[in-house]
């Protein structure tokens, strides 16, 4: 499998605090990966760097077959390159309907004038309905997003990311605050999505990670501590020390 994203030697410091320390990590195409780590391990900062929100002090972030550097690109450019990001808190546009939310995310020209002249087409409508089906919101398309339940909002956000048709999906704690059934469904959605693209899930919840059944990377103090299957990493003594020693939250 070819490498989709390669992060190497990245460090970033906030006011003297080293949030990411010489971090190197790679993702292949069509891969499901979980990133775990205690609080302050740098999981969110890592996502911030990849998506262009935070500029690292040093290191490289290289993307795709053409080896483009993502550093120096704006958030929207990176998103257009095919990296989608889901936030920890569900962020959907609560004033707008589910359909509008998905339509906005649908892969289409993003310039103001093409958006202004945008016309509704049957293909677009079909794509929206397909995605709604995938995330289980097919019968909710006309509802206002604000009225959805917490879990439905999370799915809608994932659906919006899928509508972007990204090649890499970064998902931050998708299972937080979900019921057991909702978690199962979320797992299914993510595993399904990972068949055609890389999906990176940052998660606290070991049960959820176990259910994802994928390669796991453990972050600690801004760099990779261990990598492998969940069983492999949880048997690693340093990982146990880190989690137990600091008190797993």
């Amino acid at each position: 499998m070819s490498t989709l994203l390669e992060v190497s030697g990245v460090s970033v410091t906030f006011d003297g605090f080293r949030a990411i320390n010489n971090l190197s990590i790679q993702f292949a195409e069509a891969e499901l990966r979980a990133i775990i780590g205690p609080n302050g391990a740098g999981k969110t900062t890592f996502m911030d760097i990849v998506t262009g929100k935070t500029k690292p002090d040093e290191g490289t972030v290289v993307w795709g077959e053409r080896n483009i550097s993502l550093l120096g690109m704006s958030e929207s450019q990176i998103a257009m390159e095919g990296i989608g990001r889901k936030f920890q808190k569900p962020t959907v546009f609560e004033d707008q309907t589910v359909r509008q939310n998905l339509a906005m995310a649908l892969k289409n020209p993003r310039g103001p004038f093409s958006v202004l002249m945008h016309k509704k087409t049957k293909t677009n409508a079909a794509r929206i309905e397909a995605i709604a089906e995938q995330i289980g919101l097919a019968d909710q398309l006309r509802r206002t997003a604000g009225e959805l339940s917490h879990g439905q909002k999370q799915w809608l956000e994932i659906g919006m990311l899928l509508a972007q048709e990204p090649r890499l999906l970064l998902v931050d704690e998708p299972a937080a605050g979900m019921t057991v059934e909702e978690r199962e469904k979320t797992t299914d959605i993510l595993r399904e999505a990972a068949k055609t693209r890389a999906v990176v899930v940052v998660e606290h919840d070991m049960e959820f990670v176990r259910r994802l059944d994928c390669k796991v990377t453990v972050l600690h103090e801004g760099s990779v501590l261990a990598e492998g299957s969940l069983n492999h990493v949880t048997s690693n003594q340093t990982v146990i020390d880190v989690y137990l020693g600091r008190g797993h939250a």
């Binding site: 998506t51 929100k53 704006s74 958030e75 929207s76 450019q77 998103a79 257009m80 989608g84 990001r85 936030f87 962020t91 959907v92 546009f93 906005m104 995310a105 993003r110 310039g111 919006m160 972007q164």
Partner: peptide
């Protein structure tokens, strides 16, 4: 931020 990460140049 959400709009930006959807790829729109806000």
């Amino acid at each position: 931020a959400r709009v930006r990460f959807l790829g729109y140049h806000v």
